[in-house]
Every structure is written in C-alpha cells, then in structure tokens.
C-alpha cells in the first residue's frame, strides 16, 4: 500500500452513507412516464390548434404537457412542436402573450417550461420544420443546455431559428425575470 496515492482515493465510495452510494432519484419528485405515441398524439392536437390560429392555446397546451417522463425521442419531438409554435408567433405579439400567461394561474411555471425549451432549442441542432424528429443527433447530456458543441451541425439555416429563440429569450426575461433562468438551471426535470 505504500505506493498507493492516498490523496486520490475517493473516500466517499467507502462510506455506505455517502451520497455516491445512493440513487439521487429517491430524493426527487417522481415523474410519470410518457410514451412516444402519447407525445405524437399531443403534438398533432397542438398542430390542429395552431392551424386554427389559436397560437396562445397551442403554446399553453404544449408547455403545460411537457413530457418530463418521456424518453429522448419523445422529448425531441415535443421540442420540435414547441419551436414550430414559437416561430409562428410574430415578434410584436410576444410580450403581450407572455404577460397574459404570466398573470394567469400557474403562469410562472408555464413560462419556466418555455425557458427550458428556449435553452434546449439553443443547444440542439436545428432541423427543418415538419420532418418528424427522432433521427436527429441528440445532445450527449440530458441537461438540455450548456452544450455549445451540439450546435456545430447547425449550418446557415440555424441562424434564423436562433434569432427567434433569442428574441423570445429577451422578452421572456423581461416578463419572468432572472428567477426564471435560475429555476431552469436548478430544476432536474428536463425537457
């Protein structure tokens, strides 16, 4: 043992009570599992609303039913639905829409979810609207943000989508404040 570098031993692994030795999920609220067909069903309903011109209803429906418990494909499909809605809303309508959502009951939580989708949208490579997701390469981490590497494949088409997300981000921070960003970074329920 004389040669062992004791400074690099991870003593936490040797302690049965240590946080390294228990599952973090036992501390967190449980999430109901969501299957891919359910998300597909939801996204077609939302598209219907969108075609009917009810952008606010579509956005609310999409954000209030975020598939926290879904797998990567389900989450990706929902991201696509949300970004489609975001792109269909005019810049001048953003602030009034966000204020309306914020002041309604449960509004702050809904906007937190929107912020999650904005960050996820910025981290993921954009794809052409309409092509059902699932085949796209995913960001390697489930955190949903901070993945600057994931944007490499974006290409020239990404600039447009990114500017939409950025202007949404600006308007959203005006309404929901910095607290919204902190909550997205803290929350373990990822979209």
């Amino acid at each position: 043992m004389a040669t062992a570098n004791w400074r690099t031993i991870n003593i936490d692994l040797l302690d049965p009570d240590s946080p390294s030795n228990f599952s973090l999920t036992s501390l967190l609220p449980t999430l109901a599992p969501v299957s891919l067909p359910e998300v597909q069903n939801l996204s077609s309903q939302i598209r219907q609303l969108l075609r009917g011109g009810d952008t606010e209803g579509a956005l609310r429906g999409a954000l209030e039913n975020a598939p926290y418990g879904g797998d990567a494909a389900a989450k990706d499909l929902h991201l696509q639905t949300v970004s489609e809605i975001l792109q269909s809303i005019k810049q001048s309508e953003m602030s009034p829409l966000l204020t309306r959502i914020y002041t309604s009951p449960g509004g702050p939580e809904t906007l937190d979810v929107l912020m999650k989708y904005l960050y996820k949208g910025m981290s993921a490579p954009p794809s052409a609207p309409g092509s059902a997701g699932g085949s796209r390469s995913l960001t390697p981490q489930a955190t949903g943000f901070s993945q600057i590497g994931g944007r490499v494949g974006g290409g020239e088409g990404g600039g447009q989508a990114m500017s939409v997300l950025l202007s949404w981000h600006e308007k959203l921070v005006e309404v929901a404040g910095m607290g919204c960003i902190v909550r997205v970074m803290t929350d373990r329920r990822t979209v």
Partner: peptide, 8 residues
C-alpha cells in the same frame, strides 16, 4: 418538504 423544482 420539497419543491417541484428541487432547488437546494
């Protein structure tokens, strides 16, 4: 007690 967002 635990919050939904589970912040420390």
């Amino acid at each position: 007690y635990l919050n939904n967002e589970a912040g420390w």
